[in-house]
C-alpha cells in the first residue's frame, strides 16, 4: 500500500515544469505599469513625509495653545466667581448663616459641579 511519502514523491516527480518565467514576468510588469498604483503600494518621498510631519506639529501646537488659553480662562472665571461668592458670604450675614446651616449639601453640590465640568471638558477634548 502506497505511503504518504510515496504519494508525495509521485506528485513531485510528475508535477509540470514551469517555463518562460522571464517572459511571464515581463508581460505582467507591462500590464501592471498600465494600471493605477494602489495607495497601499505608493512609496512616499522624503518631502511628502516631511510635509506630513510639519502639518502634524502645527496641529499639535495649535491644540496646545487652545488648551493653555482654555485653562487660563477657566482659572480666571473660577477666581472671579469665588471672589464674588466670598464677598457676598462675608458681607451678607443672612447668607453666611444659610450657608453654614447647609454646608454639607453645598460642598457636595460644588464637588459634583466640578467633576461634571471636568468630565464634560474631557469628552469635548477627544480627537
Amino acid at each position: 500500500m502506497a505511503t504518504d511519502k510515496e504519494i508525495r514523491q509521485f506528485v513531485k516527480a510528475n508535477m509540470p515544469k514551469v517555463k518562460d518565467s522571464d517572459r511571464f514576468m515581463a508581460e505582467l510588469v507591462s500590464q501592471i505599469d498600465l494600471l493605477p498604483e494602489p495607495a497601499a503600494l505608493r512609496k512616499r518621498s522624503e518631502g511628502e513625509i516631511q510635509a506630513a510631519a510639519s502639518r502634524l506639529s502645527v496641529l499639535a501646537g495649535r491644540m496646545k495653545k487652545h488648551n493653555r488659553l482654555t485653562a487660563v480662562l477657566v482659572a480666571a472665571i473660577s477666581v472671579a466667581a469665588l471672589s464674588g461668592i466670598m464677598a457676598v458670604y462675608t458681607a451678607v450675614p443672612a447668607i453666611h448663616e444659610h450657608i453654614m446651616q447647609h454646608l454639607p449639601y453645598i460642598m457636595g453640590g460644588f464637588t459634583v459641579a466640578v467633576l461634571a465640568s471636568a468630565m464634560f471638558a474631557l469628552r469635548r477634548g477627544r480627537i
Binding site: 508535477m15 509540470p16 514551469v18 518565467s21 511571464f24 514576468m25 501592471i32 498604483e37 505608493r42 512609496k43
Partner: peptide, 24 residues
C-alpha cells in the same frame, strides 16, 4: 511594501502559482 518589492515578491511566487493552476 512598495511596487518594486511587490513585483519581486510575486516573481518568487509565480512559478508555484502557475504550476498549481496548470495542473488544475
Amino acid at each position: 511594501m512598495d511596487k518594486s518589492q511587490f513585483i519581486n515578491a510575486i516573481a518568487q511566487e509565480q512559478e508555484s502559482l502557475r504550476r498549481f493552476l496548470c495542473v488544475l
